[in-house]
């Protein structure tokens, strides 16, 4: 079931990359996709815990919000960089991550890094070590909105 889903995704990627509809190339595409599914299944044989699944529709709602945050954070950091006297107040702090699944924790950690001004340095179980360029960025993260939104991506099991 899972393998079939992977195969369909790979096949779609292949078709969009290639755009050639010749029988030979299509045949090679099928072989390639099967090879990648085989590779992926060999890799996942050693997977320990899967955790609750990601909800794709929620991801669609999450991405525009993340985009907005990224744009705002970019403007903020650019303002800092271009100010003649860079008044910096960097903070290094620990942050709780409430996500249960590994995937959502990764999405949360990478979202923190993707917004300039905050940077995930380490993930240790429930907590993350974060570096912030300015205290305001740290406060925004501590308010927990991004954490909540990233947790909402998980299917409630």
């Amino acid at each position: 079931m899972r393998a079939l889903g992977l195969f369909l995704v790979f096949a779609l990627v292949w078709l969009l990359l290639s755009g050639l509809m010749k029988p030979l190339v299509l045949g090679l595409g099928v072989v390639s996709c099967l090879l990648c599914v085989w590779l992926a299944s060999r890799m996942h044989r050693v997977e320990e815990d899967a955790g609750p699944a990601l909800r794709p529709l929620h991801l669609l709602a999450y991405l525009p919000w993340l985009l907005k945050e990224v744009v705002l954070a970019n403007l903020q950091v650019m303002r800092v960089v271009l100010s003649p006297r860079m008044a910096l107040d960097p903070v290094l702090f620990r942050l709780r991550a409430t996500q249960r699944s590994q995937l959502c924790k990764v999405i949360y950690g990478n979202s923190i890094t993707l917004t300039p001004g905050t940077l995930t340095l380490d993930v240790d179980g429930e907590t993350m070590l974060v570096h912030a360029l300015e205290r305001a960025g740290a406060e925004a993260l501590r308010s927990g909105e991004m954490d909540r939104r990233a947790s909402a991506l998980e299917a409630s099991a």
């Binding site: 992977l6 790979f10 990627v13 292949w14 990359l17 290639s18 050639l20 190339v25 090679l28 595409g29 390639s32 996709c33 090879l35 990648c36 599914v37 590779l39 992926a40 890799m43 996942h44 590994q102 995937l103 924790k105 990764v106 950690g109 990478n110 995930t120 993930v123």
Partner: peptide, 26 residues
């Protein structure tokens, strides 16, 4: 034990392989 590279890498490996095969056959 590094969660972020591990999960991201796991997702990327088959995709990089698929891209390699695409380059091979095109």
């Amino acid at each position: 034990h590094h969660l972020i590279p591990r999960i991201v890498g796991r997702g990327m490996v088959p995709l990089i392989m698929l891209f390699a095969l695409y380059v091979q056959f095109h």
